[in-house]
Amino acid sequence: MKLRHSVRAIILTEDHRVLLCRHVVPDPPDRVVWATPGGGIERGETPLAALRRELREEVGLAIDTDPPHVWHQEFVAPGHLPGYDGVVNDYFLVRTAAFVPRGTMSDDELAAENISEIRWWPLAHIVAYRGPDLFGPRALAASLTALVTHGIPPRPVHLGP
């Protein structure tokens, strides 16, 4: 089984807003998933080096500390990603003040990654959301609420898809 190993950042402000990227997934047609910034770990790259690179590229955030690893997710679904049988996502908590997200990637490069928008979501809006878009992970509202309420877990929490 071939799994894509990825890192993701839960970029969270003091007033509990989280930065999410809007991915328009072509299959099934026009499925929209709001997910935390991040992406695949390249050959020879450590998870934290990949996280730093992805944050610079996608949202323009430079981090120089090692953020805590708070969530772990394994999603096995053949065909989920071309060439892979699923994905392993490791999530790291990055606390910061709000900023205007603009990374080194051009709009065309972001579009090639299926990213059409990046914006701050208040936690309360995620919890109350009843629209057609999905969140990644699917239980983002509950997982983020637990993280805000209980703080950094002693070891990464295992999430469902």
Results as ranks from 00 to 15, higher is better:
Arg8Met: 07
Pro132Glu: 10
His5Thr: 04
Leu55Ile: 12
Arg4Lys: 06
Pro67Trp: 13
His125Gln: 10
Leu110His: 06
Val127Ser: 04
Ala77Leu: 15
Phe92Ile: 02
Ala50Leu: 06
Arg155Ile: 09
Ala128Met: 05
Gly79His: 05
Thr65His: 14
Thr65Ser: 14
Arg22Cys: 15
His80Met: 15
Ala124Cys: 11
Lys2Glu: 14
Phe92Asp: 06
Val157Ala: 13
Ser116Gly: 03
His16Asp: 13
Arg43Cys: 04
Ala111Pro: 09
Thr96Leu: 09
Trp34Met: 10
Tyr84Gly: 08
Arg4Phe: 01
Arg138Tyr: 10
Leu140Arg: 06
Thr149Pro: 11
Thr65Asn: 15
Val7Lys: 00
His125Tyr: 05
Glu117Asp: 15
Ile115Lys: 01
Pro68Cys: 11
Leu12Phe: 03
Asp15Asn: 10
Ala128Phe: 04
Pro47Cys: 06
Ile41Ala: 00
Ser6Pro: 02
Glu74Thr: 08
Ile10Lys: 01
Tyr91Met: 00
Thr104Asn: 04
Thr65Ile: 14
Phe75Gln: 08
Thr96Trp: 04
Val88Cys: 09
Val70Lys: 05
Tyr84Thr: 11
Glu113Ile: 04
Pro122Phe: 08
Gln73Arg: 04
Thr65Pro: 10
Leu110Glu: 12
Gly131Gln: 03
Val24Glu: 14
Pro26Ile: 12
Gly44Lys: 00
